[in-house]
Design a protein around this nucleic acid. Structure first.
Lengths: 225, 225
DNA sequence: GTACATTTTGACCAATCAGTCAAGTTTTTG
DNA sequence: CAAAAACTTGACTGATTGGTCAAAATGTAC
């Protein structure tokens, strides 16, 4: 269940790359990587305005002017990181198989998203922060690419419902619900930790979470008599 | 279903009031109100670091030094607004009645939360933003008051389950799920609008949302054969 | 090794913004 | 109405921070 599979030469969706990847030197590849990793960390913790270039440079182990040599503007770093995050984020959604078994496909998708939330919560938080503040940089992307993608998947869910293989439920809201519940575990981690205490660091906790979320989504909370 | 009912002389939970409310003059009451309303708007849109005192002052219709006359520090405004938000936020949760009918109580709570998300999404976003950034100002509150409150309600849910009046599901994760789904509609409003289009502004849309969320949570998505 | 290109950095600049202050205006009080 | 209290504000300050620049250091190609 490795979701890190690289997107197959898919074009960047948010902006054109300033520089074709092939033209990059070895040093550039390394340093851009260091910067992006550091930036994800800092931006997801403090937000765009709350983060400083100095912080990112420090974390990446280089001077500020050096960092600006690779990404001339603060915005460039941010957009690059956001873009990478978005791609990784949507891959498993695209992978929902219209020809698979409905419950199994959704179970797999939900499990995958929960794993991502546990493994890389920074990515989820970066995205959440951008949306929360009105998505100033990805509004267009949401209205075009994401809208289309969701419409396609909603159609699949609709068909499953009409075939009686899924409970009759609005497919859009079902998608939103899955997103809500899975991302919540990354975005509201602090709150969950505060409430559950150290229990969240114990082995098996993620499995328990997955179990609970799947139970609620699949079976609902009304007792089956 | 009015949730604006004022908390019954409950003590502030985050910080002591700088000044007892009785000592406030008429002008103070008015201006503090204007500031708090403006601040909720600005802070929820731009985050703490992204908001400036000038913006808030402008929105409140007064000069910056004037605003600082009422709240000496930027932080003071923020904490005050956060505190008010938190109270309003938890009231309906506290109101879950251990002696009521489980499904009805949860249905009421979920409906109420969805209404709040639709009516005052700024409050939800302000809270989400604070949690997302590590809850630097309310960490203690979460670990004490909220933790205790959730434990109490989780015990009620547990009992309901053991009485067979609720499906067997981890009570903590059930609470998290409800929070996730209801807040999602406020926090990710931009995304939902992008996907659903202008449909969200049509009359009856909130009812439709509530219907879908309740169906999923109550009945799950697995078809009942 | 040498010439050229790439990478790195200290020192600096300009804009933004939280917060101060002293001098004014308005409101309340007796 | 007079004095005191409460309120308001223009002009300022110091700290932070995004971004520049020219010179130095390092890496690469022949």
């Amino acid at each position: 269940m490795d979701v890190r599979a690289k997107p197959k030469s898919r074009k960047s969706r948010l902006s054109e790359d300033q520089q074709p990847a092939e033209k990059r030197t070895r040093i550039q590849a390394i340093n851009r990587g260091l910067i992006i990793d550091a930036a994800l960390d800092i931006f997801s913790t403090y937000g765009f305005r709350g983060s400083t270039i100095d912080q990112i440079a420090e974390k990446a182990g280089m001077s500020k002017p050096n960092l600006l040599y690779y990404f001339p503007r603060k915005d460039d770093i941010y957009v690059t990181v956001l873009e990478k995050t978005l791609e990784e984020w949507l891959d498993p959604f695209e992978a929902i198989d219209p020809d698979g078994d409905p419950i199994e496909e959704l179970r797999r998708y939900i499990t995958l998203k929960l794993e991502m939330s546990a493994r890389k919560p920074e990515a989820s938080r970066l995205f959440a922060n951008e949306i929360l503040h009105g998505a100033p940089r990805i509004g267009h992307f949401l209205q075009t690419h994401l809208k289309k993608l969701v419409r396609e998947k909603a159609a699949v869910l609709s068909r499953w419902t009409s075939e009686g293989r899924l409970a009759p439920v609005d497919p859009y809201h079902l998608i939103f619900s899955i997103w809500a519940m899975t991302q919540h575990y990354a975005d509201f981690d602090v709150q969950i930790r505060a409430v559950l205490g150290h229990q969240v660091d114990q082995p098996g906790h993620h499995e328990q979470t997955a179990q609970a979320v799947l139970t609620i989504l699949l079976n609902g909370i009304r007792p089956r008599s």
